[in-house]
Design a protein around this nucleic acid. Structure first.
Lengths: 211, 211, 211, 211
DNA sequence: TATGAATGAGTCTTCATTCAT
DNA sequence: AATGAATGAAGACTCATTCAT
């Protein structure tokens, strides 16, 4: 019933953010269902009561956390692209950096990544936020590519592949740990496939390892 | 501690299976955490007590369900491959069929698919089962390819790509529903990339739509 | 409603006794409340259903067990007295034997003794049985003393002291294990006190260790 | 694990004590196994939830109750001794008072006494607490005797007899209710035996009723 | 008689949320 | 604005007892 207060004073805002930060952190670490509001209150050094002045319910904390903190975990590759001055000539090396960055993100926050993936598939609200975030990221990458003079059709679809193929690869690299997989080969192949998407087969061909 | 009974009579086995079936179904539909043992008992038309004669706990039902029923949901493409007589000449069309089949599976059991994906990322035991199942599927597909005379290096890695790219594509086709995406184009592109993995760029080139 | 059947055939009687024996054994070992009817059925190699043809309920098994098997555990001293030919002249040595026998009984079936003591104090029916048993034992000992020509007043009361002082002593000897207690001294003193009850202080005086 | 809160405010402490008091009372009355947490909550006029903020589990309430309230029930004789100024000259009368006090305690809280005796024999933790309490009481009595100039050997052992003989007697007086027992005689005899332990047979002899 | 599968009321325990201060 | 005590509905799980065969 709109009982949730909008914090006005600076201190209140800080308190609210503290709860989001520590609450989200806990949820990412132990899983949403294994974190209680008391845990959150303790980790945030506030009382349980105050939580319900800033949030409708426990779920609300999750949502706020996802909105604020999930970008680095779920979409880490954007940063690499942003910082590349001459993308067109360094595409291959940039891809490798993106993979590296994504892999690092997965490794550093393995638990967080998996918990968020889990929530994405079980929590409709999280799902929608991620969908939105993904679209925005797609558009940003598209914009960068435009700046760098990439002229291809169906750019959004290709960017989608770009993002998901890197993600898919890094999931394997970080968690699945299939014995006997040749990871360097897989990285190479992924890069090749992506380049094939954005250039043409002449380039692609050169990159083939086995030929 | 081993208090779980092994059913002796035929009827007991039926009861156990009934619980697994309805329990797993409920979990897939409403999410593991939103299903209670009473729900499962009611859906299975048994009493709550009997559940604990056949299962250690609620989680045990999930695991048994995953073991029995997740193949069709998570790895539907294998069946298509199995039934193809002349794979080498029909590879492209087979891929399209695999995509179609996978998409159907996703669509039919959308909730189940997502709940299982969720559990895969939050439940270590489910994760391990899926890892194992994936490896087995990979090996089966590899064997089929061998039978059909595919001679390529790093076959396991390529099969991995094959499976996950189809999966990735069908997730998009079924759930994400990005507005304005050209899905036919994405299917085509996926097929092209996979063929490029198993054949060479000459073939790949021919498949390119935009060139 | 009198549904409990009285076993007629030899085999049925054996089955009933088997259940009592193993059930009572389990209860003595693990405690009445920590033994389930399934445990009893398993230990007795019968089905759970059959138990309720011979017994009204779980408690009934306990009662039957107490009636049949508790004598040796709770009143072991009688046997020693029975077998003494010249009690009057060997009273001191007989007492020592009774203590020894009682101590052994306590030590051998420590768990059983304690569980039964526990039930005696929490279960009214067990309490009544033990009360009855104690009275019978008291009377038997009294009879033996009469046979051996003991002529004292308030014999029942003294026999009561005899029994309980030995019991009290042996509880200490077997379970309490107070550090630094001089047990030989305590045994001696107990014997002296009992003899003082049945003879007179002249005898008693001679037995004093610290004289 | 350590989730039990330590009450901070005065009111919380009162609540905790309320639960211990009423919970322990119930357990003493109806028996530990016949009291549910809901019973305890109702009797304490609190909700079930609050119980688990102050106690690990139901058993924990029992233990706290035993620690706080069992002294008066299980070791009531100490108080009498403490208040006697000239113990040496009033030993006989003091013993009689101790017996009277103990008998009263048994009679007033008959159920409690028996339930605690029951638990002492079935619950290891209660057993250990009582063992400890008994040792402390033994030492306190020993100290009082020392103050009053009693000089005897094996004092601890004799105090042990003193305590347990009174206890044994009062159990009979209060609960067993053997028909036809001459209780006054038994009291007298107990006093005589105890005095014989702490004085000598000259005294003892004088106390003999039947001679 | 005998089996063991099935029942379901009852138990302990948790935890999101509210309330008195 | 803040505290943390209190609530109580809901959950997992047990087990004495009954029932179909």
């Amino acid at each position: 019933m709109g009982k949730v207060r909008q914090p006005i004073h600076q201190k209140s805002i800080a308190t609210k953010e503290k709860i989001i930060k520590h609450g989200f952190q806990l949820m990412c670490e132990k899983g949403y269902h294994h974190v209680s509001t008391i845990d959150i209150a303790n980790a945030s050094h506030v009382s349980t009561g105050i939580i319900y002045q800033y949030f409708r319910d426990k779920h609300d904390i999750l949502i706020e956390g996802v909105k604020r903190y999930s970008d680095d975990i779920m979409f880490p590759m954007l940063e690499v692209l942003k910082n590349e001055a001459d993308l067109k000539n360094n595409f291959e090396i940039t891809l490798r950096e993106m993979i590296q960055k994504t892999k690092e993100a997965h490794t550093i926050s393995e638990k967080a990544y998996r918990q968020l993936k889990s929530l994405q598939n079980s929590d409709e609200e999280v799902f929608q936020i991620f969908k939105q975030k993904e679209m925005e990221t797609t558009e940003k990458i598209e914009a960068i590519l435009n700046q760098h003079g990439f002229e291809i059709q169906n750019k959004k679809e290709r960017v989608h592949f770009l993002m998901h193929m890197i993600d898919m690869l890094c999931q394997e690299l970080s968690y699945h740990q299939h014995q006997n997989f040749n990871y360097e080969q897989m990285i190479q192949e992924t890069i090749r496939m992506i380049m094939c998407l954005f250039y043409d087969c002449t380039t692609c061909k050169k990159l083939r390892i086995e030929s």
